[in-house]
Design a protein around this nucleic acid. Structure first.
Lengths: 187, 187
DNA sequence: CACCGCCTTTGACATTTATCAAAAACTCAG
DNA sequence: CTGAGTTTTTGATAAATGTCAAAGGCGGTG
C-alpha cells in the first residue's frame, strides 16, 4: 500500500485521518495473468491501483480486439467512462501478468470524497491528470505517424514493448499488427 | 450568469453560500469576434464560461492552423492542459463570434475549491465530464471514417457547421479541408 | 459596380496504412 | 523431442486521405 501513497503524494497531500480511511478501505487483491477484472459491456464499479503487474483496458470493435489503455506498476486501471457515468461500457480490463492491486469501490470513493475534502481534492487532481494523459494520446494519434507513435511509446513506456504482445501494442497505437511488425523491421 | 448556474447544476448542487461566492468571483466579459482570448504558447490562467457566442481552441502544427476544440453557448472554453499544469501550451483560444463570457481565474478557482468543499466537488465532476468528452472524441478519431466523423458532428453540434468556417471544421475533425469539401459534395 | 482577399471546390497524383493471404517463428504440453 | 496452437513476419493489393495546384464563388470596400 506504500506505493499507493507515494504515488498519490505527487498529486495532493492527505491528512493523517484521510490516509487512515484510505488504508481501511483499500482492498488488496492478488490475481493471476489472464483474469478478466472487468467484463466488457458491464459497469466498472472499482478503481484499481496496480502495485505490481500489468493490465490492459480493451474492447471488441467489429470483432477485433482493441487495446485502449495499458497500466503498469504505480498507476491506475479503470474503465473510466463506465466508472464516471456508472453505466456499462464496452471496455473491459484484463490482467496481463500476475498482479497485485488495491481496489477502491466507486461508492466508497464517493463517500470518502464527500466526507473528506482533501480526498475529494486528490481525486480532482487525479482526474485532471488523466485528462492530460488522454489529451497527449489524442494528439499523438492525430499528428504522429505510426512510426512516430511507436517511438514515443518506446521512450515513454519501454517496458510495454517487452511485456505486451505485439498485437495489443499495435491496436493501442491505433495501427494493425502487420503495420507494427513492418515498423519494427525498419528500425 | 443564470446560464452558468443552470449548466453546472447538471453536475452538482451548490450551497447558497458557494453560489454567492461564485457570483462574486465570476467576471463578465463582452468580446468581439476575432479577439485572441489566450495567445498560443502562453499559460491559460482562466476558465471561460460562454454565455453567448462561440470560441475555438487552436494551435499551429507545421505552419498549419489546427482547431482543437469548439465551444458554444453554455459550455466552457479553456486551454485545459495549460490550465491544469500551469504551464504554457501551444493551444490558444480565439473568439469566433461576438461573445459574452464569464471568467474565473485559476487561482480564484483553486481558492474556492479549497474553501468550499462543494465547489471542489463541482469541479471534480466538470473535469470528469471533460474527460468523457475527450474520450468520445478520441474514439471517433480512432475508428470513424472522415465521413462518419462529419455525420457525428452534424448530429451532435449541427450549428457548428453553419457557424464555423470549413477549414476549421476540417482540422477539428482531423482531416484536410479538401477532404471535407469532397465529403460535403457526396452527401 | 468592380476589384481584392478569402473561403471553398475540383482535379491529378502521392502516400500511408489497411486488408487479405500465407509462411515462418515461437511456446508449451505431452 | 514433437506437434498443435498462437504470435509474428512477409507479400501483394486496395482504400482512404493527404498534397499540390488552380479555378470558382462570395462578401465587403472604396
Amino acid at each position: 500500500m506504500e506505493h499507493f501513497f507515494v504515488t498519490v503524494a505527487q498529486y495532493a497531500t492527505l491528512s493523517e485521518q484521510s490516509r487512515q480511511e484510505l488504508v481501511k478501505q483499500l482492498q488488496k487483491q492478488v490475481l493471476p495473468r489472464g483474469t478478466i477484472l472487468v467484463r466488457p459491456d458491464t459497469t466498472c464499479k472499482c478503481l484499481y491501483f496496480i502495485d505490481k503487474g500489468l493490465t490492459r483496458t480493451y474492447y471488441l470493435k467489429d470483432g477485433k480486439d482493441i487495446t485502449d489503455w495499458i497500466s503498469d506498476e504505480n498507476s491506475f486501471a479503470c474503465s473510466i467512462i463506465s466508472f464516471i457515468t456508472r453505466r456499462p461500457d464496452r471496455r473491459g480490463i484484463e490482467i496481463l501478468e500476475d498482479t497485485v492491486l488495491y481496489v477502491l469501490h466507486r461508492d466508497v470513493l464517493d463517500e470518502l470524497c464527500a466526507r473528506y475534502h482533501d480526498i475529494e481534492h486528490l481525486f480532482r487532481m487525479l482526474v485532471a491528470h488523466g485528462l492530460i494523459q488522454l489529451q497527449q494520446k489524442f494528439d499523438d494519434l492525430h499528428f504522429a505517424t505510426a512510426l512516430e507513435r511507436y517511438k514515443i511509446l518506446m521512450q515513454s513506456n519501454p517496458s510495454f514493448i517487452q511485456r505486451v504482445p505485439l498485437g495489443m501494442i499495435a491496436s493501442y497505437l491505433g495501427i494493425t499488427q502487420e503495420t507494427l511488425s513492418r515498423i519494427r523491421a525498419q528500425i
